[in-house]
Simulated scan of single mutants.
Amino acid sequence: MNRKHFLSFMAMMGLTLPALKSFGNLSGAEPESGLKIPDYLKAGDTIGITCPAGFITMAEILPSIQLMESWGFKVKVGKTVDRRDFTFGGSDQERLLDLQNMLDDPELKAIMCARGGYGAVRIIDQLNFDRFIASPKWVIGFSDVTVLHCHLSRKYGIASIHSKMCNSFPADWTLADPVQIETILSIRQALSGEQLRYSAPPLSYNRAGKVEGILIGGNLSIIETLAGSKSDLKTEGKILFLEDTGEYLYRIDRMFWNLKRTGKLDQLQGLIIGGFKVKPDDPGEEFGKTVYEIVQEKVREYNYPVCFDFPVGHQRNNFALKCGVRHTFEVNSSGSSLTSLY
């Protein structure tokens, strides 16, 4: 068992080592001027749970509550849990008020979105971030929560956590596989300020290089729909990660053309391609290119490192990433690696 597996196992079992008990900035690096990094959590801090997008029941989030409490955190459940308005976790107004209350709540140190789906874009422009800016807290989630990650990055330069949410916590840890365990525990590690380091195996499609920069990104289709809005990502000098699910290859190609034509691929430090669950082509409508070929075509003229099949996305190996935090990114013949600096 390697060190990473050992620490994950010890944390799951509650037999934490001093390193797992130590909260705060563990990497020894200091955040650079201009970046806004919320305080890392310590035992006794409170995490709020809300539904800015799809609906979820209290029964479905109980495993996540129990585990986060076992980590030493308190949990405050928002009013949108157990609410439903068709596909949404309550009406737009209910979701807006619940998230607004959590943004403003001085008791909370982090806000975990209960699940993805669709809905954050319907309320993003009505949220008031004044109190949040004065006292930032970690916003946690992925998929539709990419709206929030992009908005916090573009408007305020505040870091957030791209990770699994309440609906991904296993109901029975004794039946969970190692990947499930490690990905869920990576949320705790991110919240606690541990240095995160992930790797992926080598691929012939990768492009080598070693760079340093602020990590941004998320769901490709969400990022595309935010183009030209107040939440549109600024990618210059950044390490960009992308993932998606349930899209036809021609739609993935079109979205990458959007990134290229809007200049988002021009001056990157690096590009990380995570999981892409592709919808099969309709008979007679075969696109003829793979995701690897689609991306290679769009970045051929640039020189920054590129990697594929990174462990992030709508998949079991979806590890927590600190958006808005400086990382090192390296691609070589041994594979690719991404390491947070604080």
Score class of each variant (00 low, 15 high):
I124E: 09
S91D: 12
Q93G: 02
D105M: 06
A120C: 14
A110E: 09
S91Q: 11
G89T: 06
L96P: 07
L96W: 09
Y118H: 02
I111G: 02
S70D: 12
G72K: 09
S70R: 15
K109F: 05
M102T: 07
R122G: 01
D125C: 12
L99N: 07
G90L: 03
A110F: 11
T80C: 03
D125T: 14
S91P: 14
G116M: 14
M112N: 05
R83Q: 12
K76H: 10
D92G: 00
M112I: 08
L103D: 13
C113G: 00
F88Q: 08
Q100S: 07
N101P: 02
G90K: 04
D104Y: 13
I111D: 02
E94C: 05
F88R: 13
M68V: 02
A114Y: 01
I123C: 10
D82V: 00
L67M: 08
E94K: 07
K74S: 11
E107Y: 08
K74F: 01
F73W: 14
R122H: 15
Y118R: 12
K74M: 03
K79F: 00
G72H: 07
L108Q: 05
M102S: 09
T80V: 02
M68I: 06
R115W: 02
Q126P: 01
E107Q: 15
G90Q: 05
D92H: 07
Q100V: 09
M68N: 15
F88E: 13
Y118L: 08
F73H: 09
R122W: 04
G116V: 05
D98W: 04
L103Q: 10
V77C: 04
M68T: 09
Q100Y: 11
I123S: 08
L103E: 12
E107S: 14
G89W: 14
G117Y: 09
L103T: 07
R83E: 01
K76R: 14
R122L: 11
S70F: 05
K79Q: 07
G72C: 09
K79G: 00
K109I: 05
I123L: 14
G116L: 12
S70N: 14
G90A: 06
F86C: 00
I123D: 04
P106G: 04
M112H: 06
A120K: 00
I123W: 08
G119H: 07
